[in-house]
Design a protein around this nucleic acid. Structure first.
Length: 305
DNA sequence: AAAATTAACAACCGCCCGGCT
DNA sequence: GAGCCGGGCGGTTGTTAATTT
């Protein structure tokens, strides 16, 4: 038994009340369907009080609304059209998922919410990868590489590459030679604009001719896709800041300051206005959905092709 | 083939609102 | 008007399936 004043968890309360939680069984679904057929989708709490199911009214309602209600599109992904609607309406309504769901027959607020959440995570992962977008010339030399990092407060600018092989190092890693007394990846706040430092290292293996990594080849071989291609090409127009050497004479160099305005372009009639520090939200809102597929496209000649 | 990672889905929780007493 | 209760909603977490390494 519980001591006086001891904490009693919700689980214990539910268990004591005989309330079931977790995944629904087929029999429970059947009982719920039977109840709704007889009484309609209302008075959810009476389902338990009448002893029909050991579930809370909330749980019953949620199960009905999200899984059992007729006409739901269960088991099929959002179509491009549905994705577009969600993106457009999210801009209008914000995170009012129930309202957005009313524009999508067969979709619930939970569906929309899950779709948006997954999309956010996916985009965040994409933007945090050290080399989401890079370009090389036909000789395989890196000509422009652009990388977003933790866009909450940082991003890197386009990098002029005068070496056949330059690697961008993720901000989270340490200076590889461990001789740099300063934090080479430090991100500093300033009133005017965020200051971002990027470390560039020479190629690890200078004796070997550098082969373009598969990722770059896949960018070069991409089929026409206006939105994504225009976005990639936009990196060409970025200002290229001066590099400064590490004061500790290590081989790292710094890219001292990022431009205040990163994007301002029109892509296939879709206006991009991505400005730091407002970049995160606007980028999420405007990020073309098909750009995911573009950037994550399987590399030709690799596994599976 | 196994392990790790990611995406998609399901369900719960806390908060809020409106109706009822 | 205050308190209670049911229902709705958004946020979050847990689970499972699919994919990648």
């Amino acid at each position: 038994m519980h001591r006086a004043g001891a904490h009693i968890s919700r689980e214990e309360i539910h268990a004591a009340a005989g309330i079931r939680k977790g995944p629904w069984q087929a029999e429970e679904d059947a009982a719920l369907m039977d109840y709704v057929a007889k009484h309609g989708p209302r008075d959810w709490s009476s389902i338990r009080s009448k002893g029909l199911l050991p579930r809370t009214g909330k749980s019953c309602r949620l199960r009905w609304v999200n899984k059992l209600k007729p006409g739901l599109k269960t088991g099929c992904k959002f179509s491009p059209e549905e994705e577009r609607i969600v993106i457009d309406l999210q801009e209008i309504f914000g995170n009012r998922w129930a309202q957005i769901a009313t524009y999508l027959p067969g979709r619930t607020d939970n569906d929309v919410k899950n779709f948006w959440s997954t999309r956010r995570k996916r985009l965040a992962r994409l933007l945090q990868s050290p080399l989401p977008i890079s370009r090389r010339n036909l000789a395989g030399e890196a000509v422009v590489a652009a990388s977003f990092s933790k866009f909450e407060d940082t991003f890197s600018a386009a990098l002029p590459c005068n070496s056949p092989c330059l690697d961008l190092i993720p901000f989270t890693e340490q200076c590889s030679n461990n001789q740099c007394s300063q934090e080479p990846y430090a991100v500093e706040d300033s009133d005017a604009a965020k200051t971002v430092s990027v470390v560039i290292e020479p190629a690890i293996n200078d004796s070997q001719p550098t082969q373009p990594p598969p990722f770059d080849q896949h960018l070069l071989n991409l089929p026409p896709l206006p939105e994504a291609q225009d976005l990639v090409l936009a990196f060409d127009d970025l200002p290229l800041p001066e590099f400064i050497a590490c004061p500790d004479q290590c081989e790292a160099m710094r890219l001292p300051e990022a431009p205040a305005t990163f994007f301002d372009l029109d892509v296939a009639g879709h206006e991009f206005k991505i400005e730091h520090p407002e970049m995160p939200e606007s980028f999420f809102d405007e990020f073309p959905s098909d750009l995911f597929d573009y950037l994550e496209q399987p590399v030709a000649g690799q596994k599976g092709s």
